[in-house]
Computed example of a mutant assay.
Amino acid sequence: MPRFIVRFIKNVLGDNGQMDEICQTAIELDAPNGREAELQAKEDYDLERGFGSSDCL
Results as ranks from 00 to 15, higher is better:
residue 51 F to M: 11
residue 14 G to A: 08
residue 40 Q to N: 13
residue 45 Y to D: 03
residue 12 V to N: 04
residue 54 S to P: 02
residue 47 L to E: 13
residue 16 N to I: 01
residue 19 M to I: 13
residue 16 N to W: 05
residue 27 I to T: 07
residue 3 R to D: 08
residue 11 N to K: 05
residue 30 D to V: 12
residue 28 E to P: 01
residue 48 E to N: 15
residue 29 L to R: 00
residue 50 G to K: 03
residue 1 M to K: 10
residue 55 D to Q: 13
residue 5 I to E: 13
residue 11 N to Y: 08
residue 19 M to V: 14
residue 37 A to V: 07
residue 57 L to M: 10
residue 5 I to K: 05
residue 9 I to Y: 02
residue 21 E to Y: 12
residue 40 Q to G: 05
residue 6 V to N: 07
residue 3 R to P: 00
residue 43 E to P: 01
residue 33 N to L: 05
residue 8 F to I: 04
residue 30 D to K: 15
residue 17 G to H: 03
residue 12 V to S: 03
residue 30 D to T: 10
residue 10 K to I: 06
residue 9 I to G: 02
residue 24 Q to P: 00
residue 47 L to V: 12
residue 1 M to W: 07
residue 18 Q to L: 11
residue 47 L to P: 04
residue 15 D to E: 11
residue 36 E to G: 02
residue 32 P to I: 11
residue 4 F to P: 00
residue 43 E to M: 14
residue 32 P to N: 13
residue 18 Q to F: 08
residue 5 I to C: 05
residue 41 A to H: 10
residue 17 G to T: 14
residue 21 E to M: 03
residue 32 P to M: 10
residue 4 F to V: 05
residue 40 Q to F: 05
residue 19 M to P: 02
residue 13 L to C: 11
residue 48 E to Y: 09
residue 49 R to T: 10
residue 8 F to S: 05
residue 7 R to F: 00
residue 4 F to R: 03
residue 27 I to P: 04
residue 33 N to T: 09
residue 52 G to F: 11
residue 12 V to L: 06
residue 44 D to C: 10
residue 23 C to D: 11
residue 40 Q to H: 10
residue 41 A to K: 12
residue 45 Y to T: 00
residue 13 L to Q: 10
residue 22 I to G: 00
residue 14 G to S: 09
residue 6 V to C: 01
residue 46 D to W: 14
residue 44 D to V: 07
residue 49 R to C: 04
residue 14 G to I: 04
residue 12 V to P: 02
residue 7 R to L: 06
residue 28 E to R: 01
residue 29 L to W: 00
residue 41 A to T: 14
residue 50 G to T: 10
residue 23 C to R: 02
residue 44 D to I: 15
residue 51 F to A: 06
residue 48 E to G: 13
residue 56 C to Q: 06
residue 26 A to M: 04
residue 32 P to D: 13
residue 32 P to R: 13
residue 34 G to I: 08
residue 9 I to L: 09
residue 55 D to P: 01
residue 28 E to D: 11
residue 3 R to Y: 13
residue 28 E to T: 13
residue 20 D to M: 07
residue 15 D to L: 15
residue 17 G to A: 07
residue 3 R to F: 03
residue 15 D to I: 09
residue 36 E to W: 12
residue 44 D to F: 15
residue 25 T to A: 01
residue 15 D to K: 12
residue 1 M to P: 06
residue 55 D to M: 06
residue 44 D to K: 15
residue 56 C to T: 05
residue 49 R to S: 08
residue 45 Y to F: 12
residue 31 A to Q: 03
residue 16 N to C: 04
residue 35 R to T: 09
residue 7 R to W: 00
residue 27 I to S: 07
residue 5 I to P: 02
residue 22 I to P: 01
residue 11 N to C: 04
residue 50 G to L: 04
residue 48 E to A: 15
residue 38 E to T: 13
residue 49 R to D: 05
residue 14 G to L: 09
